[in-house]
Simulated assay, not measured.
Amino acid sequence: MNSKLNIVVRVDLDRARAQVIAKGHVTVHSVNAIYVVAKRANALKQNLQLELDVSHASVDREALEMLQASSQQHHLPVRVDPQQSDCTISVLAPKRQYHPGALAA
């Protein structure tokens, strides 16, 4: 697994859906890059369904918890989105089991 973070965005404005796909290693520091891309995607259309797909990434446990918290709160972190725009987020987590400190993909 490459530790470099690679992010791809797929947008379907007709269906008001966007998918942010991250591969590589997602840490508590690099998760901010996912948030910034998610904020840009969310700004494209009102009521956009935003899916954060980290299912093919190696995700640190704390980073996954941060993503899941954003999903539950319907907002991105204040440091990324000070206006706290509504954001409908779902998170596709890695499929493999936790190992100490991180999730393996």
Rank of each mutant, 00 (worst) to 15 (best):
R17D: 05
A104P: 10
K45Y: 00
V20R: 00
D81A: 05
P94T: 13
A105H: 12
Q68M: 10
A57M: 08
V28L: 09
V91M: 11
A63N: 04
A22W: 00
Q84K: 12
L50F: 02
L92H: 13
L48Q: 05
S90E: 08
H74L: 08
L64M: 05
S58C: 12
E62D: 07
D86R: 15
Q49V: 01
A93Q: 12
E51A: 10
V9Q: 03
K39Q: 04
V9E: 00
D12H: 09
A57F: 00
V31W: 04
A43R: 12
D53N: 12
E51S: 06
A102Q: 15
Q83R: 11
E65H: 04
I21F: 03
Q83H: 11
L48T: 03
Q83E: 11
R15G: 07
L50I: 02
R40W: 06
C87P: 05
L50P: 00
D53M: 04
V8E: 10
Y98F: 09
S90G: 05
L52H: 09
A104S: 14
M66F: 10
L52V: 03
E51M: 11
K39N: 13
D60Q: 12
V8K: 09
H75Q: 14
G24S: 05
V31L: 10
A33P: 08
I21A: 11
K39H: 12
V91G: 11
D81I: 03
Q97Y: 07
A18T: 01
E62F: 01
S85N: 14
C87W: 01
